Simulated scan of single mutants.
Amino acid sequence: MLNDLSSPLAFLLSRRSAKARDLVAPGPDPAALDTILSAAMRVPDHGKLAPWRFIVIEDRDRFAQTLLSLYLADRPGAGRLEREAMDAFARQAPALVAVVSLVRESHIPAWEQELSAGAAAFALLAAAHASGFAGSWLTGAAAYLPGMAEALGVPGGRIAGFLFIGTPSRPLEERPRPAASDVVLRFPSGSA
């Protein structure tokens, strides 16, 4: 296993993202992916709206064609390198799940619903980590292309991210983290 599961806190402190291009087989089998997705559904969800959808992208050839078609419609002058980058994006890692934010008509503010979608994406990454895999949450051009959510079957949705899951082909690198003193504030200011 990749992770230190000796305690929940050690597990959380060991989580880090992989580079999608460095994720190789094995990835989660269908039963493992279902478990990962079930864990991702247990996020805070004010109003019980489930304002997110998980799109398991199984047919990578079809996804690559869809992605390229949407990309060229948005950027008709795209050159060979851009086309190749879209194709490579679609084919990274053994498993790929699109997380789509789907704000529902409700008294629950849209912002809270969008935050729930972000929490679901993180929970998916954490569950993949707990299952012995690594993951990468990417957006980029693919997430912002007009028509992408509709092409994935979620009209009116917005792509929160593409989550790539697999086994790292190289050791994961730790990245610099913010110092608590830079991001933790106390209210009222100056209190302990």
Rank of each mutant, 00 (worst) to 15 (best):
A93S: 06
L2R: 15
I55Y: 01
R170C: 12
F164H: 07
R158P: 00
F54M: 03
R60M: 07
A18I: 07
P155H: 10
T167Y: 03
E173V: 14
V183E: 11
F54V: 05
D29L: 06
V154Y: 01
V97I: 11
A95Y: 00
L33K: 06
L102D: 09
F187Q: 11
R158K: 15
V97A: 01
H129E: 15
R75E: 12
S7R: 09
G153Q: 01
L23Q: 00
F11W: 03
A64E: 06
A127Y: 00
V100N: 01
R175H: 13
F63M: 08
R158I: 08
G118V: 07
A149T: 04
T167Q: 09
R53W: 02
A39P: 00
K48S: 14
L68C: 11
D61Y: 03
R158E: 12
P44K: 12
E82T: 02
R80M: 12
L9E: 13
R83V: 06
I108A: 08
M1V: 13
P171N: 14
D22T: 15
I55R: 09
R175I: 08
M86P: 01
D61K: 13
E173T: 15
A126K: 08
H107V: 15
A50P: 00
V56M: 04
V154R: 03
A95H: 04
L138F: 03
G47D: 03
H107M: 13
R170L: 14
V56C: 07
T167K: 11
H46C: 05
D74R: 14
R83I: 06
S14H: 12
A130W: 01
I159F: 04
G118H: 08
D22Q: 14
L9M: 13
F54E: 02
S131M: 10
R175S: 13
R91S: 06
P171M: 15
T66M: 12
L70P: 02
R60N: 07
G153M: 02
D61C: 08
S131P: 01
K48Q: 14
G77F: 08
P8D: 09
T66G: 08
L81C: 06
P188L: 06
P76V: 10
S7A: 11
P44T: 10
A149I: 04
L9Q: 13
A85C: 08
E112Q: 13
E112H: 09
G156P: 01
D29I: 03
F187I: 11
L72T: 10
D45A: 12
A149N: 05
P188A: 09
F63R: 02
S6Y: 01
L70R: 11
D29M: 03
A192K: 14
A50N: 11
E58F: 02
G118E: 07
D87F: 07
E82D: 12
S169W: 07
A142R: 05
S189F: 10
V97S: 00
V99M: 04
